[in-house]
Amino acid sequence: MTGGSALSLRRFLRSAGFAWAGVRHAYRSQPNFRIECWAAALALSLTAVLGAPLAPILLTCALVLSLELLNTALEAVVDLASPELHPLAKVAKDAAAAAVLLASLGALGVGAVVLGPPLLGVLRGGLP
């Protein structure tokens, strides 16, 4: 067995470094991922300012960003396996993009339900 114990801090940090490299690559190369990161930062900031529940906003942001990373990974694998246009490659890429779209729409719904009432209160002149 290489790399030591599964509970090794060194092994964990090495794996985390690989994961962080994936995040950096996606942020640099994927415009939608950048937009979603900034939307998540805005949603989380608004959550803090309004004193709204953090968990649902945090989880929906993590879901959208995670699915965008999987979409990026799937696109790379499909491009590697099928550099030429192929109908099944299109299906795979479209389905992965659809997963991100559905999660994003769900995140908007969660944001409206969780952040809507306190935001309306502030807009009507109340304090958060």
Results as ranks from 00 to 15, higher is better:
Val100Ser: 04
Arg124Ser: 13
Phe18Ala: 10
Leu74Glu: 03
Gly3His: 13
Ala99Trp: 14
Pro117Arg: 07
Phe12Asp: 08
Val78Met: 02
Ala73His: 03
Ala81His: 07
Gly125Trp: 08
Val78Gln: 05
Gly22Phe: 12
Thr60Met: 12
Ala43Met: 07
Val122Glu: 06
Ser82Cys: 12
Leu123Met: 15
Pro128Glu: 12
Arg14Lys: 08
Val23Glu: 10
Met1Phe: 12
Ser66Thr: 03
Val100Asn: 05
Ala112Glu: 03
Ala21Lys: 05
Val77Asn: 00
Gly109Lys: 04
Ala21Asn: 07
Ser45Pro: 02
Pro83Glu: 13
Ala95Leu: 05
Ala103Asn: 09
Leu65Ile: 08
Leu80Arg: 14
Ser66Leu: 02
Ala81Glu: 03
Ala6Ile: 07
Ser5Glu: 06
Pro31Ser: 02
Ala98Asp: 14
Pro53Cys: 09
Val122Cys: 04
Ile57Trp: 09
Gln30Glu: 11
Leu123Tyr: 11
Pro117Asp: 08
Val78Thr: 03
Ala26Pro: 01
Ala39Tyr: 01
Leu108Tyr: 08
Pro53Lys: 06
Leu123Pro: 00
Gly22Glu: 08
Arg10Leu: 09
Ser29Ile: 06
Ala92Asn: 02
Leu101Lys: 09
Pro83Val: 14
Ser66Asn: 09
Ala40Gln: 06
Glu36Leu: 11
Glu68Thr: 03
Cys37Gln: 00
Val91Glu: 13
Ala103Leu: 04
Cys37Tyr: 02
Leu44Met: 15
Ala95Glu: 08
Ala92Met: 08
Thr47Leu: 02
Gly51Arg: 01
Leu63Gly: 00
Ser82Arg: 14
Pro87Ser: 00
Ala55Ile: 05
Leu88Asp: 11
Leu67Thr: 03
Thr2Phe: 12
Ala19Gly: 06
Leu7Val: 15
Val77Tyr: 08
Pro87Cys: 01
Val113Asn: 04
Gly126Arg: 07
Ile57Thr: 15
Leu63His: 07
Arg34Ala: 07
Ser5Thr: 02
Ala40Lys: 00
Gly126Ser: 14
Val49Tyr: 14
Leu69Asp: 03
Leu115Cys: 04
Val113Arg: 14
Leu102Trp: 15
Gly3Gln: 09
Ser8Ala: 15
Arg14Glu: 07
Val113Met: 05
Gly126Val: 00
Pro83Ala: 13
Ala48Ser: 03
Ala6Arg: 06
Arg24Ala: 15
Glu75Met: 02
Trp38Met: 09
Ala43Ile: 05
Ser5Gln: 06
Pro117Ala: 10
His25Glu: 15
Arg11Ala: 14
Ser45Phe: 13
Met1Asp: 10
Lys90Asn: 04
Ala96His: 04
Thr47Arg: 01
Arg28His: 12
Leu120Lys: 08
Gly51Ala: 00
Gly4Arg: 08
Ala39Ser: 02
His25Gln: 13
Glu36Phe: 11
Asp94Cys: 04
Val91Trp: 05
Ala41Tyr: 10
Pro128Gln: 08
Ala95Cys: 03
Gly51Ser: 10
Val122Pro: 02
Ala26Gln: 04
Ser29Arg: 10
Tyr27Ser: 05
Leu70Ala: 15
Ala95Thr: 14
Phe12Arg: 07
Ser8Val: 00
Ala99Arg: 12
Leu63Ser: 13
Leu108Ile: 10
Met1Arg: 07
Ala112Asp: 00
Gly17Tyr: 11
Leu50Met: 11
Leu105Ile: 10
Phe33Gln: 01
Cys61Val: 05
Ala96Met: 13
Thr2His: 07
Ser15Gly: 05
Arg28Gly: 13
Thr72Phe: 15
Leu13Glu: 01
Pro87Ile: 01
